[in-house]
């Protein structure tokens, strides 16, 4: 058994909050630079140029890439041979507050979704998973709500043709239109239960946007082409880059169902990971 102090978890989470909010993921930046290179149309090219410049300013000045420093989504993969000394959940929540406070990020969380009231840093969403080994892997994903508001879930029939799923995904992006900071990364979860499909869609956004692999590879490629034919473009200004990547995660599901969830990310797709 390996013992990890919850204080260490707290410090690591705080650091991940800083890293994810101020440094654009290298894979995302590479895709945006590629889109910039390929864009000939002046207006969308200028918008892509601003995104690249923004990433540079954020990195140099240690400033949040986007004022919407999001609802922090924290993924924890705890090795089954690890014993956490102290309160793990509390350490994660406190780590988020510490990181967000120290780096002057935005208080974007209201404690009661109906009453609303004064916003704060308290209330990160935590997903935990037990895995083999003696390590703890922590990922922080600050998810902005401009794009989170454009999420969709549909429970398809098990006899549904793939074509219908494709139309659902493309329509979801069409509905998001220029509002949620394109060019987008589209995360898709297929299978599991209603809740699990949504989680898969979010986890799909954690995967590098540079690699397309697995059984859904051809579907990812096809959807990317279809979405880019929408010509929404950066800031809705048209051009080639509406979507940087489509990432799909799948999971076994029930014989009676076929859940499909779409979780869209803006171009500021942020996440950072550490292994303790």
């Amino acid at each position: 058994m390996r013992v990890i102090d919850s204080e260490k978890i707290k410090r690591t989470v705080a650091q991940l909050c800083f890293r994810s909010n101020c440094f654009l993921r290298p894979d995302v930046l590479a895709k945006i630079k590629l889109a910039y290179k390929n864009e000939k149309d002046k207006k969308p090219r200028q918008a892509l140029g601003q995104i690249i410049e923004n990433a540079k300013i954020a990195r140099c000045e240690k400033m949040a890439l986007c004022q919407d420093t999001g609802l922090p989504i924290v993924f924890i993969e705890a090795g089954q041979s690890v014993v956490i000394k102290g309160d793990l959940k509390r350490a994660v929540l406190q780590g988020v507050v510490k990181g967000y406070k120290e780096d002057c990020f935005r208080e974007s969380i209201v404690s009661d979704p109906l009453v609303r009231g004064r916003s704060s840093y308290a209330g990160a969403v935590i997903h935990t998973d037990i895995v083999r080994g003696d390590k703890v892997k922590i990922t922080v994903m600050p998810k902005g709500f401009g794009c989170e508001n454009k999420s969709f879930l549909r429970m398809f029939l098990p006899t549904t043709k793939v074509q219908e799923i494709k139309e659902f995904v493309v329509d979801s992006v069409k509905l998001a239109g220029p509002d949620a900071c394109p060019p987008y990364v589209v995360g898709i979860g297929i299978g599991g239960s209603a809740d699990y499909a949504c989680l898969l869609a979010k986890k799909a956004l954690l995967r590098s946007v540079l690699v397309s692999k697995g059984a859904a590879r051809s579907l990812e490629r096809d959807l990317l082409n279809r979405i880019n034919k929408l010509k929404i473009g950066p800031m809705g200004l048209g051009g080639k880059a509406t979507c940087l990547a489509v990432n799909i995660e799948t999971y076994p599901t029930h014989i009676a169902g076929l859940p499909v969830a779409v979780n869209i990310s803006c171009h500021a797709l942020r996440s950072a990971t550490a292994i303790i």
Partner: peptide
Amino acid sequence: PAGCGALVSKCVKQAKPVAYPDLGP
């Protein structure tokens, strides 16, 4: 510039609170 908050911050020369401080951000 959407999603470019750091870039926009460079254009702000002065910021002064005007109303509703209880609303925080």
